[in-house]
Amino acid sequence: MDLLLFTVMPAALIGTALWRIPAAIHSGRAARSLCLTTGLLGLSLLCTNPAISGPIHHMVPNLPVLLRHLLTLASATYLLDYLDAVHADDARSRLRPGLPLLAASAAAMTAIFFLLLPRGATPKADDVITQHLGEIRTDLYMAITYAYLGLAMISGTRTFWHNRRSVPRGLARTGTTLLAAGCATGALYTAWRLIVMTLAHIGAPETPAIHQVGDILALITLVLIATGLTLPPLRTFARYCRDQRNLWRIHPLWADIAEQFPHLVLGERPRSRARELFTLGDRTIDVSHAAFTVRDGFLSLAPWAAPDATRAATVGADAMSEALWAKAALTRKAGNDNPAVPDIVLQDQQLRGPTAEIRWAAQVATYYSKATS
């Protein structure tokens, strides 16, 4: 469990935030806030990793506690800022803590932490809270933390739940639902912690079960929110991998057609196969351009085809014959042979959508690569 909470989840969240950086730079406020939400939450969890918190605690006693709380509140603030950017016309999204309240809360927490809380070194950073729970100075610090976090979680629950049906079905809606559930559990966690803090303040006896319930609620909250934040990027990453795979398959045929018919190239000219493979960003348009170039190249190759050569009329009907037909025609074109007919023949050419066009180009290019290897 410690490996999941202290290493895997922070790594997944920080990796997701790094993946979102280009969109955060070039897109609007929503993408920027979502990137900050994910990254700050990952850093907050990283502060609980003993390998990270230990050296910080050794240099400045108990500082990892303050850093974790401030990063958590900042993450919740930017999550709500993302909600406000996406659903600006929703009154629920305006009932939320914003950056001014975050700044005021952070300043108050920092002042209490350094001026009022005990400064002596403790075996673990969290001991500065657990060992002094029930004292006014500790209760004041934690009351600010839980009040701010509770308000953010309640606002997030209402907005995510209200707007989940407007999100398209799939991973995006699943992620939104998980975020709503995570915020709801987070609100329950803050309420529970306030109850525990009140019981400690009035001197009620503590039992391990009380703290275990809080730990379980915190873990469920983190897992739900972290999963909700990382699911939509997984869909984007899966689409990127699919596009890169199709582009890798199409590339040999695409490059040869582009060399013979430069005027047919849509977008940028083909680069080396390796450079195309390691190009980051959305490749949906690039792979579509490659498939359309192959399609137009087949039409332009008709005059160089052998007189008795025929092409398959349906998608995937005979990809091998299509590939051999293209190889023979490209060889004649590269050898400067005169075209067999003066005009391009548009016989038996079927109209296909982008998805079918990419699938057809990938199938034919696979056999073309085998024929030319």
Rank of each mutant, 00 (worst) to 15 (best):
L73W: 04
A74V: 00
S75D: 05
A76Y: 08
A76W: 09
A76S: 11
A76R: 01
T77Y: 02
Y78K: 00
Y78A: 01
Y78M: 05
L79Y: 14
D81S: 14
D81R: 10
L83E: 10
L83G: 13
A85M: 10
A85P: 06
V86T: 09
V86S: 07
H87F: 15
H87L: 07
D89R: 11
A91T: 10
R92C: 06
R92M: 14
R92S: 11
R92F: 12
S93L: 05
S93T: 15
S93K: 02
L95G: 06
R96W: 02
R96A: 12
P97N: 12
P97F: 15
P100E: 11
P100W: 10
L101G: 09
L101I: 06
A103C: 12
A103E: 05
A103P: 07
A104N: 08
A104R: 08
S105L: 01
A106Y: 05
A107H: 00
A107V: 00
A107Q: 00
A108I: 01
M109L: 14
M109C: 04
T110L: 04
I112W: 02
F114A: 00
L115Y: 06
L115N: 10
L117M: 10
P118Y: 04
K124M: 13
K124Q: 13
D126P: 01
D127W: 14
V128C: 12
I129D: 07
H132V: 01
E135Y: 07
E135D: 09
D139R: 04
L140M: 15
L140R: 05
L140C: 12
L140V: 15
A143K: 00
T145Y: 14
T145S: 12
Y146D: 07
A147D: 07
L149Q: 08
L149I: 02
L149W: 03
L149K: 01
L151M: 11
M153D: 12
I154D: 06
I154E: 05
S155E: 08
R158V: 09
T159F: 10
F160Q: 06
F160Y: 15
H162N: 05
H162V: 01
H162M: 05
N163M: 05
N163R: 14
R164K: 10
R165Q: 10
